[in-house]
Design a binder for these strands. Structure first.
Length: 1045
RNA sequence: AGGGCAGUGGCUCAGCCUGGUUAGAGUGCUCGGCUGAUAACCGAGUGGUCCGGGGUUCGAAUCCCCGCUGCCCUACCA
């Protein structure tokens, strides 16, 4: 045990402890210690290796670390592999940027797939290193050396194995479907990749006239669209069978002549459409002339507006079932015209309608989103919008052209607006197992519980999972198709691949382009080549529960925790894959946490400049304070508003803890204290009390961490440190620390402090490992383990005494009440109170613990008696309500009608009282006293304390003595004297009798002298409660100095 | 549009499940006090339409219904 300095730099401390852990291999020793114990299986949701971590990522790992440290303290063998998400578009995009390329063609021609893959790998590994060191800086203990990485062959193989399982269970499917397509990345995307990627954009909003075929009357269908470019591929117009559609007669006033037309519009949208049309046209007259049901419109043929611009449409126009009105339930009347332009190759519902009516799926664009035919061949479709609008105008088919602000999906990595496009992709048939997934969810312990609802609602909406990406950096899809007969095969392992391989390819690395070179032979005799796609990166992390430990059996994770964005992502993706392979959910307990926002509640973003870097916070405050703050600022599942103010509060909490520790240790060091269980025999009640408290605290904390409710955990810790330890217990034992060296009461106080500190740092260590370890290292004895984390968290049930906790709690209330009362009448603590009166119910407690009240309240005598004063009465509504229900107001009136004094007497005599037929029992009412002038009364939970505040000469003298002592002590402190240092004092302006002078001398380790040569003199003005003033002059000199002169 | 969460002093949040006396804590500000562990602490004062409106009840911050606002998730406004 060494002396502790008061001013502590928590950052220095945490670096020192990290060094200690490193140099002594503590993490490994802790792991080794429990390697044969029952397992606690944790699966880390892998962060993406995109660069540096942010506050939210830090929070995430801190939660994990805290829970796992707790589980280690419970003696589990914690399986704590961290993971990394390393494949996928984000990294591809970054590498592309670095090499200044922006298309897939460039990748293949400019730098080559092989080098590209190599660069992606480098990039991922480089970032992993940076992020790992940041996590370590937070004090996160995970098995960094054995992290799982989806880019390793073994992991990739697990992905193949999984896909083969899906294939064998008939859950793998190749299908032509309309899905999201990123024209920049030239790949399809899955729906979960698009989640949260809807951004507000301005798009054209045009109303177009489609002229009916074989019609003499100039009748037009009016359609609305925000994607003019899709008109090139328009095949049908959909209407809702049950809606009303109006034929609107319109007379247009062109400059030279008037024309008469009929427009077909959804009835409720007529006025809105006309209003828009009026902006571009002079409409002289319009009137609804006929109303029909949507179904009556079915089959009407129209003339495609862009026949000349797209020769293909000319061909289509000759086909029977094209360019006509069809029915669709998806049509709404929320906006637009009620008639929906339908392009079968460019919309999911359009696609379905097209299939239903046997219409070709027409999608005339390439992977870059450029037309492959028609007048604007080679032009990016979004750029063609303006040309098309202009052309429609020329053709007099444009009713209105405006702009609309709406949300539209974007690529999650490159932020390009997505297109909808029909392509052939590989799917996992989630639709077939969705019910199972929802059922499994019931067996999971969700924290908080409502995550289940959210999860299930999310799953209900998902479609089949598109797992194929037309990209490079990912797990290659292990499917080979035959050039000749088009059949395909799914390969489940490297071994299998080697067996089937007909050429000789070195399979050192399973990425592209290596595997692409592998050829197989089809039973039909043809050559089989690999499907060039890679797997969706969410598939990678979805494999984690079993792939991270290379297990082909399901080991359910005891615990996972991620941010709320992951509810429909990782919580789902790993469940989906496990459901396919193992028909089960891969986790037992699943917790959700929030996002880290800035002080005002806005998202942290580079553009707003409000990003808080965890490293910076750690540099200033040390890791433990950030950790504690993040776990205590709110309930984990709510978003955190990061605030330096609150961070500072946490720092003061730790300062208090540190000072309590320093106080205890420094006195122990001074007295060469050696902890010894035998001192426990001399425990006083307050010692037993705090020992009981710290055990109760431990017990409660174990429950909270078990859930885990990290907010309750940290709040309880704080309450204990501030209230129980620092503000109460240490105050109580202060005088004991000034006793003689081997005074048993002093030693037992030390022993208590020692015991409590040990217990406290152990429950504190999961959240604040560095500070706990630091304290542990200083106070541990030879026979204790090397690190605090090698200990076991236990509760000493035998020390828990809840009655004692309650009673001391009451004593504390009484002391607080006394202090409050004193304050109210300016009767300061230095002046004793001659007598207080407490209610009779307190008798037993006062007999036992009255000495605490006397000492802390500076009280000479405690009387236990019913205080006689004027009595008032108060109804107890809770009790009354239970008995009298709706009669309560009447009963209260009755109670108030009786003289409280009579009421009380009667109750005491008879046990109950009848008023107006209501029987009143004692528990229905409460009595309060009113008090005479020289007495003050202050309430506490079990009654009132009455204090006699009459001043006598003795009381004043005693108070003055304390006044003087305090001033001398304060001067000692100014002089920066050692606690043991002896002094000579000269005091003028006040006199005490001999005994009192002696007491003062003893308290301040000094001697009063007549003459003094001092460099420190101070004048004091002392005001007593009886309004007298003393001007006192005090001079002090160290005895040491006098002697040396 | 559907689902989830939240709305309580200037600020950050408890309390709500299980209704009950005067709605709490921390922080801020004002005043006072205490102090040989504590740039710490204690007390008083200041500050509240408990988001709004209905309902149930003797009694609602708490339970129910209808709204409003914010955040998140889901969602092809063609």
């Amino acid at each position: 045990m060494e002396e502790v300095k008061g001013n502590i730099n928590f950052r220095k401390l945490d670096l020192e402890i990290k060094k200690f852990w490193d140099e002594n291999d503590i993490y490994k020793k802790v792991k080794k210690l429990r390697e044969h114990n029952p397992e606690y299986y944790f699966v880390d949701g892998p962060p993406y290796c995109s660069g540096a971590i942010h506050l939210g990522t830090a929070w995430n790992k801190i939660i994990k670390d805290t829970v796992l440290r707790f589980k280690r303290l419970q003696d589990y063998n914690v399986l704590d592999k961290p993971g990394w998400d390393m494949h996928g578009l984000p990294i591809e995009v970054k590498v592309e940027e670095e090499y200044n390329i922006d298309s897939k063609k460039d990748i293949e021609t400019k730098i080559g797939t092989e080098r590209f893959i190599e660069k992606c790998k480098e990039f991922a590994l480089k970032n992993k290193k940076v992020m790992e060191s940041q996590f370590k800086n937070l004090g996160v203990w995970l098995d960094w050396e054995n992290a799982y990485m989806p880019i390793e062959n073994e992991y990739i193989e697990m992905g193949w194995w999984t896909l083969k399982k899906a294939y064998e269970k008939d859950l793998l499917l190749k299908d032509l479907r309309v899905g999201y397509w990123c024209p920049r990345c030239e790949t399809s995307l899955a729906e979960h990749e698009v989640r949260g990627e809807y951004k507000e954009v301005m798009d054209p909003s045009i109303y177009v006239k489609f002229k009916l075929k074989d019609d003499k009357e100039n009748t037009y269908l009016i359609i609305w669209t925000t994607t003019p470019w899709t008109l090139m591929a328009n095949m049908l117009v959909s209407v809702h069978p049950n809606f009303n559609y109006a034929y609107v007669k319109v007379i247009l006033d062109n400059e030279d002549r008037e024309t008469e037309e009929y427009w077909i519009i959804g009835e409720s949208l007529v006025e809105e459409v006309i209003k828009r049309a009026k902006k571009n046209h002079k409409i002289k007259y319009h009137k609804i002339v006929k109303i029909v049901k949507g179904e009556e419109l079915e089959g009407l043929k129209y003339i495609h507006p862009l026949l000349e611009e797209n020769k293909k449409q000319l061909e289509f126009s000759k086909m029977e079932n094209l360019h006509k009105v069809v029915l669709g339930e998806h049509v709404t009347l929320d906006g637009g015209s009620g008639l929906v332009h339908t392009a079968t190759g460019f919309g999911e519902e359009d696609f379905e309608v097209g299939k239903r009516y046997g219409v070709p799926i027409y999608s005339p664009i390439d992977d870059n989103g450029r037309y492959i035919e028609g007048e604007w061949k080679g032009i990016f479709v979004k750029d063609a919008d303006d040309f098309i609008i202009e052309r429609l105008k020329e053709k007099n088919l444009l009713l209105h052209s405006g702009k609309i602000k709406h949300t539209y999906p974007h690529c999650w990595r490159c932020k390009t607006p997505l297109l909808f496009r029909a392509t052939e992709q590989w799917f996992l048939k989630i639709s077939k197992i969705k019910e199972d997934i929802i059922n499994h969810a019931k067996g999971v312990y969700w924290v908080p519980s409502w995550v289940e609802t959210r999860y299930v609602n999310g799953v209900k909406f998902v479609g089949d999972w598109n797992i194929s990406r037309q990209r490079y950096w990912g797990i290659p899809i292990p499917i080979w198709t035959c050039e000749r007969c088009d059949s395909y095969e799914v390969i489940g392992s490297v071994e299998e691949l080697k067996e089937r391989m007909i050429n000789d390819i070195d399979l050192e690395d399973l990425h592209k382009p290596t595997v692409d070179r592998v050829l197989l032979k089809c039973p039909c005799g043809g050559i089989m080549r690999r499907v060039p796609d890679v797997l969706d990166v969410w598939y990678d992390s979805g494999l984690a529960p079993y792939a991270s430990i290379y297990s082909k059996e399901l080991k359910k994770a005891d615990f996972i925790v991620e941010g709320h964005d992951q509810v429909t992502k990782w919580f789902y993706s790993q469940h989906a894959l496990s459901a396919i392979v193992f028909e089960d959910v891969p986790y037992k307990k699943c917790m959700m946490h929030g996002f880290a926002l800035d002080e005002k509640g806005s998202k942290m973003s580079k553009s707003l400049g409000n990003v808080v870097n965890p490293d910076d916070v750690v540099e200033e405050y040390g890791a433990d304070i950030l950790r504690y703050y993040l776990l205590s600022a709110n309930k984990a599942w709510e978003d955190i508003k990061f605030s330096y103010n609150e961070l500072n509060d946490v720092r003061s909490l730790f300062n208090t803890l540190w000072n309590s520790y320093a106080f205890a240790i420094n006195y122990m060091v001074l007295d060469n204290f050696v902890p010894n269980e035998e001192y426990m025999e001399y425990l006083k009640d307050e010692d037993k009390w705090i020992i009981s408290r710290v055990n109760t605290l431990t017990k409660e904390i174990i429950e909270e961490l078990e859930i885990p409710h990290l907010h309750s955990y940290t709040w309880k810790l704080k309450d204990f440190i501030l209230n129980d330890l620092s503000r109460w217990y240490i105050k109580l034992i202060r005088s004991r620390t000034w006793r003689e060296k081997d005074d048993p009461e002093k030693l037992s106080a030390y022993q208590t402090l020692y015991y409590v500190l040990m217990k406290l740092i152990l429950v504190l260590s999961p959240v604040s490992p560095h500070i706990s370890e630091k304290i542990y290292q200083n106070i541990k004895t030879e026979d204790m383990p090397d690190s605090i984390f090698m200990n076991k968290l236990t509760v000493d049930e035998k020390y828990i005494d809840s009655t004692l906790e309650e009673n001391i709690g009451l004593i504390r209330e009484i002391v607080d009440a006394i202090l409050r009362g004193r304050d109210r009448v300016k009767y300061t603590l230095r002046y004793p109170i001659s007598k207080i009166t407490l209610p009779k119910t307190m008798e037993e407690i006062v007999n036992k613990y009255g000495y605490i009240i006397k000492e802390q309240g500076n009280v000479k005598e405690i009387e236990v008696a019913e205080f006689k004063g004027n009595i008032s009465i108060k109804p107890n509504y809770r009790e009354l309500g239970r008995v009298f229900k709706s009669e309560v107001p009447k009963v209260v009136k009755a109670i108030n009608s009786v003289d409280p004094k009579v009421f009380l007497d009667e109750l005491e005599r008879e046990g109950s009282l009848k008023i107006q037929n209501y029987e009143i029992k004692p528990e229905y009412v409460q009595f309060k006293m009113e008090i005479p002038d020289n007495i003050i009364g202050v309430e506490f939970s079990k009654g009132s304390v009455y204090m006699d505040i009459k001043l006598t000469e003795d009381i004043i003298k005693e108070g003055l003595m304390r006044e003087v002592i305090r001033r001398i002590q304060s001067m000692r402190k100014d002089m920066d004297l050692d606690i043991e240092e002896k002094i000579n004092i000269k005091m003028e302006g006040i006199s005490f009798d001999k005994d009192m002078l002696k007491s003062i001398e003893k308290e301040v380790r000094g001697k009063f002298v007549e003459e003094i040569t001092s460099d420190y003199t101070q004048d004091w003005e002392i005001k007593t409660p009886d309004k007298k003033t003393y001007n006192v002059k005090i001079s002090i000199v160290e005895v040491k100095k006098v002697k040396s002169k």
